[in-house]
C-alpha cells in the first residue's frame, strides 16, 4: 500500500468512526427521552398492563395511581418532608456560605488562600468517613435536647444540620470563585461614597453575585432533593422520612402490594420537579456543575 492510499484509508476509517459515534450519541439521547416517557406512561397504567404490554399506551388511564401513592403509601407526607427539609437547609446554607465566601474572596488578604483550600478539602472526603460520627452525634444530640433543653427532639432537625454542614464546602468554594471574578471597581466606588464595608457587601456585591448565588442554591436543591443515605441512617420513623426513602419503602412493600403503577407514580413525583428545574435553569445548572468545579 502506498503512503497516500494508507492515508485515504485512515481518513475513511476516521470519518466512519465519527459517523458511528454520532449515531451512538443520538441513540443515547433517544434512550434518555424514551426512559422519561416510559416511566411517565407506566405511572398511569394498571400494574397488569405494565407487565403485559410494557411499551404500549395505557388501556385505562390510571390517574388514581398518583392518589394512592400520595395518600395510602405516604408519599404525600414524604414530599412535604422533602420540601421543608430542602427549603430550610438551602436557606441556611446560603445564609452561611455567601458571607463566608465574600469574606474569603474580598477581605481575607493573605489568609484567604489557605481558608479556601481548607473548605475545598471537605469536598474530597467521602461521606462514609463522616457517617459513624454523624450517627453518634445524632443520638447524643437528641438525648441531650430531650433530657436537658427542650424535652423533645425531631431527627429531621439533625438531618437539616448535617445537610447544611456537608453542603458548605462546595457552596463556599464555588461562591469564592464567583466573588473573585466580579470587578472590584464598584466596591471601591461604593466605599469612596461612604458606604460601610457591610453595606457594600450587602447592597452592592450580593446583588452583583446573584447569578452565581442562584446557581449554587439550585445545585444544592438538586443534591439535597436526591439525598438518601443520611435520612436512612438518622430517621427511623417512616412518617418523618423524605421522598427517596419513602420510595424505597414503597418498593420494599411491593411483594405485598404489587402496586407497580403506584411505584412509577412515586418515581414521577421524585423525578418531575428536578426535570422541571433542569428545563427552567438548563445551561446554568450544567455550567455551574462543570465550570465551577473545573476551575
Amino acid at each position: 500500500m502506498t503512503g497516500s492510499a494508507r492515508l485515504r484509508t485512515a481518513e475513511a476509517f476516521g470519518a466512519s468512526a465519527i459517523l458511528l459515534i454520532r449515531a451512538g450519541l443520538w441513540l443515547w439521547v433517544l434512550f434518555n427521552v424514551a426512559m422519561v416517557l416510559w416511566v411517565m406512561l407506566n405511572s398511569v397504567k394498571t400494574s397488569r398492563s405494565i407487565f403485559a404490554d410494557p411499551v404500549g399506551m395505557p388501556d385505562t388511564w390510571m390517574w388514581e395511581n398518583f392518589a394512592t401513592a400520595w395518600s395510602t403509601s405516604g408519599l404525600g407526607a414524604a414530599t412535604l418532608n422533602s420540601v421543608i427539609l430542602v427549603t430550610v437547609s438551602v436557606a441556611l446554607i446560603m445564609g452561611l456560605s455567601i458571607p463566608a465566601a465574600y469574606a474569603v474572596a474580598r477581605l481575607g488578604g493573605r489568609s484567604s488562600g489557605p481558608v479556601a483550600t481548607f473548605f475545598a478539602i471537605g469536598m474530597s472526603i467521602p461521606f462514609q468517613a463522616f457517617a459513624v460520627p454523624m450517627v453518634l452525634i445524632s443520638v447524643g444530640l437528641s438525648r441531650f435536647m430531650i433530657d436537658w433543653v427542650t424535652g423533645a427532639w425531631d431527627p429531621r432537625i439533625t438531618v437539616a444540620l448535617f445537610y447544611v454542614v456537608l453542603s458548605l464546602p462546595f457552596s463556599v468554594f464555588v461562591l469564592i470563585g464567583y466573588f473573585r471574578s466580579l470587578p472590584s471597581e464598584l466596591e471601591e466606588a461604593s466605599a469612596l461614597d461612604g458606604a460601610t464595608p457591610f453595606r457594600t457587601f450587602w447592597q452592592i456585591m450580593v446583588p452583583l453575585a446573584k447569578p452565581g448565588i442562584t446557581t449554587v442554591a439550585v445545585l444544592n436543591v438538586l443534591s439535597l432533593w436526591n439525598e438518601t443515605v443520611i435520612v436512612l441512617m438518622l430517621v427511623p420513623n417512616q412518617r418523618m422520612q423524605t421522598l427517596n426513602v419513602a420510595l424505597l419503602n414503597f418498593y420494599s412493600n411491593m411483594q405485598y402490594t404489587s402496586n407497580w403503577g403506584g411505584l412509577f407514580a412515586g418515581v414521577v413525583i421524585v423525578v418531575l420537579p428536578m426535570i422541571a428545574i433542569y428545563l427552567w435553569f438548563g445551561r446554568r445548572i450544567v455550567n455551574g456543575m462543570t465550570q465551577g468545579i473545573g476551575k
Binding site: 434518555n32 427517596n244 420510595l247 428536578m274 426535570i275 428545574i277
Partner: peptide, 17 residues
C-alpha cells in the same frame, strides 16, 4: 443537555427504573 439529564435524577429513581 439530553445526555446530562440522568445525572440530575435521583439515583434511587434511576436504580428503580
Amino acid at each position: 443537555s439530553a445526555v446530562f439529564l440522568p445525572f440530575m435524577i435521583s439515583p434511587i429513581a434511576v436504580g428503580l427504573a
